[in-house]
């Protein structure tokens, strides 16, 4: 008699734990051919609220880590991902379709992107900061600091590479994230959350909500304790994007607008995915004896 396999329950990732949705809702996730894969937790506004609380709690500690330490942790994420390559390849292949060769390439790129961003942690300040030669006897230094809690609506199509490409720049710069995964392709995000949970990333630094950006997004956009929102995941829905941006104005969140169509994630990102999440702090001090 064949052994009955043990199926995995896909849950949310909030504050370092894997809870079910507070609402008790889940939704069916199908593969690229429409076959049932699993049930995923359907994140509610209260899950979003809990995730923001968890993120805010984690922010101070994460931002205070040395850049070297954050770099090591991002590199550790890449290591653990590499270790679980087959699982990611399988998830990407089943969710996104295409060939296994493509899925392999996407996973390679996702891991490499983490390594790339790991290296930025202790360099971005040098590239974007400045010593300012003011016209007086003052030491004057501008340095970038993380903006805080970032709500990220992850890309819908690119369920892993796209996801990594929007999370990594935020956390490497010391921000913390509440990310809403691809609605139709949430499983790689959950697997990624499991990697995060075992990669020395402190709980709450990345919080993963599976579900619909159109329902959770407005709560995050209007949340007064969220500092920035990345609208990448609503690319193509101009009306929703505009409404989210309007809601974000309530506390002047930094907004990364949605592109008209989803980005090609395979190209090198440049600095912008990090710089929009940085606040420049300028410190003055007199120079005297």
């Amino acid at each position: 008699m064949a052994r009955v396999d043990v199926r995995k329950t896909y849950k949310l990732y909030i504050g370092g734990a894997f809870p079910r949705s507070e609402s008790g809702h889940s939704y069916e996730v199908t593969d690229s051919k429409g076959a049932f894969m699993a049930n995923a937790a359907l994140a509610s506004r209260k899950d979003a609220r809990d995730a923001v609380v968890a993120a805010r709690k984690a922010f101070g500690g994460w931002a205070a880590r040395t850049a070297y330490n954050r770099a090591q942790i991002l590199y550790r994420i890449a290591e653990v991902m590499e270790d679980r390559r087959p699982q990611f390849v399988d998830a990407v292949y089943r969710c996104e379709g295409g060939s296994t060769a493509r899925a392999n390439k996407v996973v390679d790129e996702a891991i490499d992107r983490l390594v790339w961003y790991a290296g930025w942690a202790d360099k971005i300040g040098q590239v974007t900061g400045s010593a300012n030669p003011v016209a007086g006897p003052f030491f004057n230094l501008s340095t970038p600091e993380p903006t805080g809690v970032v709500a990220v609506l992850a890309p819908q199509a690119s369920s892993l590479l796209g996801l990594v490409s929007v999370i990594a720049p935020a956390i490497t710069t010391g921000n913390v994230v509440v990310v809403v995964s691809s609605h139709q392709r949430p499983l790689p995000a959950v697997t990624f959350a499991e990697v995060l949970a075992t990669s020395d990333v402190p709980g709450g630094v990345v919080n993963v909500l599976t579900g619909d950006a159109a329902t959770v997004g407005p709560w995050l956009a209007a949340h007064m304790d969220v500092n920035a929102i990345d609208l990448t995941g609503v690319a193509g829905d101009a009306e929703l994007a505009r409404n989210l941006e309007i809601a974000a104005a309530d506390n002047l969140k930094r907004v990364r607008r949605a592109p008209a169509a989803e980005t090609d994630w395979s190209t090198e990102p440049g600095l912008e995915p990090m710089t929009w999440l940085l606040e420049t702090k300028t410190v003055w001090h007199p120079i005297g004896i």
Partner: peptide
Amino acid sequence: AGVVWANTFNKFDPTSPFG
């Protein structure tokens, strides 16, 4: 805060970012 004045205050300079 975007500008921290230590042992001084309300100093402005074209080379110094403010915001």
